[in-house]
Design a protein around this nucleic acid. Sequence first.
DNA 1: TGCAAATCGGGGAGGCCCCT
DNA 2: AGGGGCCTCCCCGATTTGCA
Length: 357
Amino acid sequence: MADYSGDPSEFKVYWFARDLVASSYGSFATKETETLRQLSDQLERELDGRGLIQETDLEIKKEQIRDTITGAVNRTYGGDISKRYRQTEDLAERVIRRIEEEHDIRELRIAIDAVVRTSEILDTAPSFGKGEIVDIVDETLQDDSGALDPSKAYDALYNVDFEGEAYQLGAQREPLIDYVYEEMREFRADPHIEDREIARIISGIVQEYERRAGQSRASTAGNVLETALQHIFDQFGVPASGNPAHFGDLEIDNMVDGSDGSIGFSCKRTLRERFRQSLSREAEIGVDEVWFVSLLMADVSKEKLQDISNDGSRIYVPRDSFVWNRYSTDDNLSYTLRPADHFIRDVVEFTGVSSDL
DNA sequence: TGCAAATCGGGGAGGCCCCT
DNA sequence: AGGGGCCTCCCCGATTTGCA
């Protein structure tokens, strides 16, 4: 064990913030923002209005906080105690337990303001929308003469993913910098906060911010690819079903159905494990084959290629990848492993749909 | 021991149900 | 009939497990 201080009292702002947003405690901060705002204001008035809080007052204050938190949500649902109330009760208990002295209430205030502000920032940070996706796809598909090049379809998906990541990260970081700057100025002017504490508090806020921002990036990344894939099909006049379809536990991002055959598409950043769920289920999905597109090669192992091959499906990878280099000559995999630059042409050929190619 | 596979943890989206 | 509550799914990165 490393010899560092693990005293949780050192990180109260962080833990208050963590508990307030945790989904296991009902995602209180994102759903009961107004209650939190009022609680913060009320605590501020009370803290400023007097000197040191007496111990009995502290106990009263803790119960007020508990009641405010639990009072914000309905207790029952369908005659039973609602799950949400139970989660909120857990939250209140944890918050109360961390309050041991007056200063902890100040830390709670700071945490409340931080999580509320973080939600605002994440809500208003410009997300990577349809417009940006379309622009990048179009720019990638165009050759020197301005004509659309179907061999660039995979590159377009890759660029959208790559640019989207950078874009969103930047969009999320700038307002964070503004917020941290503002907070630091306030903390410096606050006689209750020592210099070193500023670093402690700020790091807690930022740590929690990035955790949430990262989750949010994860959940939007998939939609970006779905949108891009559809736009690519549109650009080449390939009639695609458009929206993703769900088949129990598996999702097919798009489908193309033609006179000669039908394909379900699964387009992912990485293959992970979930791709196996779509194997052997073509009949259920209502397509002849499932074609995978993986942007990153990290998960494309020979074993997985074999599984996809046994399923009679295909996966598209870039020609300049080592995966292609190493396995494209393997006779067993020749049907399964395909070069990314053939993607659109293969779709048209396999399904027999009319297109602008 | 080192890599691949599997699982975990968690916020958000979306859809459905049923309460109020 | 509007919306809160709940469920299931997505994705990702991180962690754990499994296996040559």
